[in-house]
Design a protein around this nucleic acid. Sequence first.
RNA 1: UCCUGAGUAGCUCAGCGGUAGAGCGGGUGGCUGUUAACCACUAGGUCGUAGGUUCGAACCCUACCUCAGGAGCCA
Length: 453
Amino acid sequence: MPETIKDLLYASEPRSSILARGWVRTKRDSKACSFLEITDGSCFKGLQVVVDATLPTADLLPRILTGASVEITGELIASPAAGQKWEVQAKEVKLLGEADASYPLQKKGHTPEFLRTIAHLRPRTNLFGSVFRVRSKMAFAVHRFFQERGFFYVHTPIITSSDCEGAGEMFQVTTLKPNTPTKPEQDFFGRPTYLTVSGQLQGEAFACALGNIYTFGPTFRAENSNTTRHAAEFWMIEPEMAFYDLFDDMTLAEEQVRYLVQAMFDECPDELEFFNKFIDKELVARLQQTLAKPFERISYTDAVEILLKSGRSFENPVVWGEGLQTEHERFLAEEHVKGPVTIFNYPKGIKPFYMRQNDDGKTAAAMDLLVPGIGEIVGGSQREERLDILEALMAAQGLEPENYSWYADLRRYGSVPHAGYGLGFERLLMFVTGVPNIRDVIPFARTPGHAAY
RNA sequence: UCCUGAGUAGCUCAGCGGUAGAGCGGGUGGCUGUUAACCACUAGGUCGUAGGUUCGAACCCUACCUCAGGAGCCA
């Protein structure tokens, strides 16, 4: 298999003959020689290649501009200059693919807005190369976290006929031709179907069989949301655990966030350093703080008290029974706690039917984990395991019982207490990279009006 | 969807009523073991689109389009 630039940069000794392939990041010419910096995406750093002007293949140099792909045969030597440990003294240069002057990536900083317009080329930049290496490492760490704890990975359906009530608007999936009179029964599945907004309900079925399970896959929301934290297609991590109560649930969510932050330090140090320098100067300090002490937990009722006593004037009034607004959440995480905080036991009136009703008759066993800079990163609850109460809640929220009969069966036959949560993978990536826009942590982001590529 | 702001060269921006500018990127030449190198010269733009005001509009007004930020919805 071909060697990568990462292999070469981590060499322990000089080598008399190597082959390096990659894309030219910069070229610096002098009379006697040219310096190429080439990258292949295998790691953050690039490899410096020195091409002597007397080399027979040096006449290719005028055609080797930023973005060109090259193959270099040469010698790996200790670099005589500062800036890099190793460099390649080229013996032969091959131009694999030219990139002419219209190549849009220059040797200078570009705005993320511009780079979004060239989503197919942006992974070649320092920033996006780093983001997507981190995305891969974090995805694997998510699996590792659960697998180390004996959780089973369940593939819940992408196409579904059940709407996870309260999760948002759905994209319809149909093979019926538009503008022709048709009935739902004539459709492919014999009923209306949608792209899933959550695998939770199916996840509960498997938790009530395999014990501890998780899903990790794409979910879809047809909301017309235009913010830095929302996308129409995003990846969600949804564990569901039999015999867990709300506090077990919170503990697992907190552990997972800390685990993934630790993985960032352990597995992506070069990228972390880059993000801290160019994206968010507080990033490393904030992540260290995340690991330093256990996350705080505040009940919704106490949180309302804290907000009311804060002496702060908020745009939106703080009222028990209403949802916490973004400004309230930010105050709690960024100013009151100055770190991640879990808010739990929300008023039952603002939560969906499947959340377990608390004995106080006023609240539901729900929790949100808020982090500084992002806000809500996890939303979860203990699920209502009592059939009569579940049915009453469904009726109160106007749901058709027949659509949820399979879900009610989980309570009808061997019901157990259980709990779960959803962790937004992209929001987690924003948290560990400091990248402020969700569109920049998704390879090809889907947001309202945007589905190019 | 609502509110706010912005659209000027390939990119980042300045110009804010009187003949379109800079830096970077490209080209040419020079120089140097260079690090987003440096120096000189050079090419490159119907100033988002359509109307309007004015002797005169990149600049003022209106509408639309696009992008961004904030809010709501949530992960």
